[in-house]
Amino acid sequence: MEKKRTEAGSTSARGLATRRRLIEATARLCEERPGVEVSVAEIAKAAGVFPNQVTYHFGSKDSLLVHAAFLGLLHDARRIERIGRQAPDAAAFRRNIARAVLAMPSLPSVARALAAGIAKPELAPVVDQHLRLLFRQSERFVGRLADSRGWKADRPLGVEVRTFWSTALGAVLLVRAGAHGTNADLDLAGALTIHDARAATQPE
């Protein structure tokens, strides 16, 4: 019995490792070749696994692409956090975060993932899972930074981060749908209400 449990645990660990390699390899390929379709064979080769492992672990290539897109987004979000910490004040934080988010390499892949979630209902729960993780991570980061700097938002932080990311991702979807315009046409910083509460309360 103990041997069977050990073997099951080993198999589970190998499966998780394979899933991780597939997601990381796909994210890397998508970042290296933005806008270019990658094949199952290319993904499998980059991950060092057999092509049938894609459907075995994810059900479809589209599901794997969604996982990979959001892995890239979370990696980019961590880099964005470093930029946010360097801001000397709340106004600079809003500007710098907005500029950096619109330049994230993962955005095209995430736009495709969102479109896939709309077109294929079976992928919607996967998209929702990753968005919830993104929102939680962002809310935790903004909350800690705001507390340490004496900053405040004009609304609950959960609403703040959802509004910000919805604006950013919505803009990418509009461009993907053929809308004309550039990043200069979007006031993403205006989607943030973070401000320096201490400065606001000082007497004139």
Rank of each mutant, 00 (worst) to 15 (best):
M1K: 11
E2S: 13
K3N: 12
K4F: 12
T6W: 15
T6D: 15
A8F: 13
T11G: 09
A13K: 14
R14P: 03
L16H: 12
T18W: 08
R19H: 01
R20K: 13
R20V: 00
L22N: 02
E24G: 01
E24Y: 05
T26S: 03
A27T: 08
A27V: 08
R28T: 15
L29K: 03
R33W: 01
G35I: 02
E37A: 15
E37T: 15
V38Q: 07
S39D: 12
A44C: 09
A46G: 07
V49Y: 04
F50D: 00
N52I: 03
N52V: 04
Q53P: 03
V54F: 00
V54C: 00
V54D: 00
T55N: 11
Y56N: 04
H57W: 04
S60V: 01
K61E: 08
D62W: 00
L65Q: 06
A69E: 02
G72C: 01
L73P: 04
L73F: 13
D76A: 05
R78V: 09
I80R: 05
E81R: 06
G84I: 10
A87Q: 06
A87N: 05
P88D: 04
D89N: 12
A91Q: 12
A91Y: 03
R95K: 12
I97H: 02
R99A: 15
A103Y: 03
M104I: 08
P108M: 03
S109E: 01
S109D: 01
S109I: 08
V110S: 02
A111V: 15
A113T: 10
A113E: 01
L114G: 04
L114V: 11
A115T: 14
G117R: 03
K120R: 13
K120A: 11
P121G: 06
P121F: 04
E122L: 01
L123V: 02
P125N: 02
V126M: 03
V126F: 00
Q129E: 15
L131T: 11
R132L: 14
R132E: 14
L133N: 07
L134Q: 11
L134C: 07
F135L: 15
R136L: 13
R136P: 04
Q137K: 12
E139Y: 10
E139A: 13
R140Y: 09
R140P: 05
F141V: 06
A146M: 09
S148P: 08
S148I: 08
W151H: 05
R155V: 13
R155L: 09
G158Y: 14
G158R: 10
S166V: 10
A168V: 15
A168E: 04
G170P: 04
G170F: 04
A171K: 02
A171W: 12
A171D: 10
A171H: 12
V172T: 14
L173C: 06
L174K: 13
L174I: 11
V175H: 11
R176I: 06
A179Q: 11
H180V: 11
H180G: 09
G181A: 11
A184W: 10
L186K: 11
L188V: 15
L188H: 10
A191R: 08
A191D: 05
A191S: 15
L192V: 10
T193A: 07
T193H: 01
T193N: 02
H195P: 07
D196Y: 08
A199E: 14
A199Q: 13
T201I: 11
P203I: 06
P203L: 06
E204P: 14
E204H: 07
